[in-house]
Simulated assay, not measured.
Amino acid sequence: MTKHPVSAAPFKRPPRPWYKRATAAFHAPQGGIPVARVIPRQVDCGSFILRFLEPSAAFGEGMGTPDSDRVSLDTNAFKESNLSDSRTYHPMIKLGLSNWIYHLPRWHSSRFYPVPHPPYAVITAHWQLERVKHDIQLKPDDTTLLEDYLRHDYTAYLESEGGPNWKVRDEAFNGKTITGDPLPQYQIDHIIENGLLAPPLSYEVLTCNAMHWLRYLWAPRPAMPEALNYTTTLLPDVLLTVDFHIVRMNSEPWEDWWDLFLEDCETLVKSIACQRKALPGAD
C-alpha cells in the first residue's frame, strides 16, 4: 500500500522581533521570494513522489512553468545540465525553475541621491534530479559518502585534463609575449593565481522531512559566492540538487542581504518531501 502523501508546508518566514520590524525600512532588504505566489508542486518520479514549493518567477514569462509533473528516471532522460561549473555538468532532469530579486531597504541612504539603484542580487533557483557519475552507488541516508563523492567530483572536474584549472595552467605555460617569447615566470604565476577555480570548501548537514541534505557554496573566486547548493541522495544513482544561482548587482556588502537569502533558501528546501512508493506486494 502506498504511504499517505506528505504535503509541502506553506512558505512562511519566521516572525521578526518588534524592534526589527520597527526599523525594517532602514536596514531590511526588500523583495525576495513572493510569499503570496509560491506554488505547491508534485512530481511523480516512478519509485517516489517529490513535493516542493516553487515561487512564481519575478521576471521571464513562463520561467516558473514546470516541464512535467511526471518524469522517467531512465538513463536517456537525463540531459546535459546548464549549471556548468557550479554542478560540474551533471546529467540532469529539470523539475522546476524560478527567480526573485533582493532590493535595497525602502529608506536606504543612497535613495536620497540621484544615482542608479540596482538591486542587491538576482537569484535563479533550479530544482533538478542528477545522475551520479561513473556508475558510483551512494546510500540515501549517508551524508559522509555523499560529501566524499562531491569533493572528489569537484576536484576531478576542475583538475583533470581538459578541466577549467587544467586549461588555465596550460594556457599560462604556453602563453607568448608580443615578441613570441615564452611568458616570464612572474606573469605565469599571476595568470595561474588569478585564474584557478576553487572547489567548495565545506559541507553542512541539514536534515528535514527524513531527507539528509548537504549545503555548500560554489565560490570559485573569493570575492563573492556564485551559487548556494543543497544536494541529497534519493537513489543510489540519483541525486536531488536545489541550486540557488546568484548574480550580484550592487556594490553594497553582500552581508546586507545574505541572511535573508539563506533563510529563504532553507525554508524552500525544508518544504521538500519525498514519498517513497511501496514495492509491489508489500503490505
Rank of each mutant, 00 (worst) to 15 (best):
E54P: 00
P55Q: 06
S56V: 12
A58G: 02
F59G: 05
G60A: 08
G60Q: 07
E61P: 10
G62L: 09
G64S: 15
P66K: 12
D67H: 13
R70M: 15
V71E: 06
V71Q: 08
S72P: 05
S72W: 03
T75Y: 11
T75L: 15
T75I: 14
T75E: 14
A77K: 04
A77V: 01
F78V: 09
K79Q: 14
E80C: 06
E80Y: 10
S81A: 03
L83D: 09
L83P: 06
S84G: 04
S84N: 07
S84I: 12
D85F: 12
D85V: 02
T88S: 07
Y89H: 12
H90L: 15
P91G: 06
P91K: 09
P91H: 06
I93Q: 00
I93N: 02
I93F: 03
K94H: 12
L95P: 00
L95S: 01
G96N: 14
S98C: 15
W100V: 04
I101R: 11
H103M: 13
L104Q: 10
P105W: 02
P105L: 08
P105K: 04
R106F: 11
W107H: 12
W107C: 12
H108Y: 09
H108A: 11
H108V: 07
S109Y: 15
S109L: 12
S109P: 11
S109Q: 07
S109R: 13
S110V: 09
R111Y: 15
Y113G: 04
P118D: 13
P118G: 06
Y120D: 06
V122L: 10
I123D: 09
T124M: 12
A125Q: 14
A125H: 04
A125P: 01
A125F: 01
H126E: 07
H126W: 13
H126T: 11
H126L: 06
W127D: 14
W127R: 09
W127Y: 15
L129Y: 06
E130F: 05
E130I: 02
R131P: 03
R131C: 03
K133C: 08
I136A: 09
I136G: 01
Q137R: 13
D141S: 14
D141K: 10
T144N: 13
T144F: 10
T144S: 14
T144Y: 11
L146Y: 03
L146C: 09
E147W: 01
E147K: 05
H152K: 05
D153V: 00
D153R: 05
T155V: 13
Y157A: 03
L158C: 02
L158Q: 00
E159A: 06
E161A: 08
G162D: 03
G162N: 04
G162F: 03
G162C: 01
G163N: 00
N165F: 01
R169F: 00
R169D: 00
D170V: 00
E171D: 12
A172S: 03
A172C: 02
A172N: 05
